[in-house]
């Protein structure tokens, strides 16, 4: 049986090892953020972070998450206590329908974790695998910039300790 560390907590998985991670997250663990968009790794709506890297959960068999750290948008905060990236998306009102947003946020989370000083160009390039059909991209870019700026002093301070 597979087990993984999901949003900081070790969880056993009942599903067959070749089940795409997306269905395990949504069905077995009742999570909402990772979305089915294409099942083909073409749109990014299902993106989660495994050991710091953004992956398409719709085409990732759950066995590849064995003993690894899986982070979903639920792991970044709640509506009542949003994390800095979530706060930035709320402040920038960076959603229309919002269906694509969790996947974008997870890729942004992975980027800002490994590169807190990411340039605007780097943020844009990083988001290339993600589609937004409502045309909210300008706000998404603004929100990620805002989050990067809000998170940087803290990470700089931590690095200096």
């Amino acid at each position: 049986m597979t087990s993984m560390i999901l949003n900081g907590e070790r969880r056993a998985v009942r599903a067959a090892p070749d089940t795409p991670l997306l269905y395990v997250l949504r069905e077995e663990f009742g999570l909402n953020a990772a979305k089915f968009g294409c099942g083909l790794g073409q749109c990014g709506a299902c993106t989660v972070v495994i050991d710091g890297a953004a992956v398409f959960s719709c085409v990732t068999p759950v066995m590849l998450a064995e003993n690894r750290q899986v982070t979903t948008l639920e792991g970044l905060g709640t509506a009542e206590a949003p994390g800095p990236l979530q706060r930035a998306f709320i402040d920038a009102q960076a959603a229309q329908c919002g269906y694509c947003i969790p996947g974008m946020m997870m890729r942004a989370h992975a980027l800002l974790t490994r590169a807190p000083d990411a340039s605007d160009a780097a943020i844009r390039a990083e988001l290339e695998p993600h589609l937004c059909r409502c045309g909210t991209q300008m706000r998404i870019l603004r929100a990620i910039r805002r989050a990067a700026d809000a998170m940087r002093p803290r990470s700089t301070a931590e690095a200096g300790r």
Binding site: N32, A33, A79, P82, I90, Q93, A95, G98, P102
Partner: peptide, 23 residues
């Protein structure tokens, strides 16, 4: 006024925001 949208917090935190999320 530019009142913040009431539906956005759930959408950016993994709340049950869509028909796809109804169980």
């Amino acid at each position: 006024r530019p009142v913040p949208r009431i539906d956005i917090p759930a959408k950016v935190t993994g709340g049950a925001a869509y028909i796809q999320d109804l169980r």
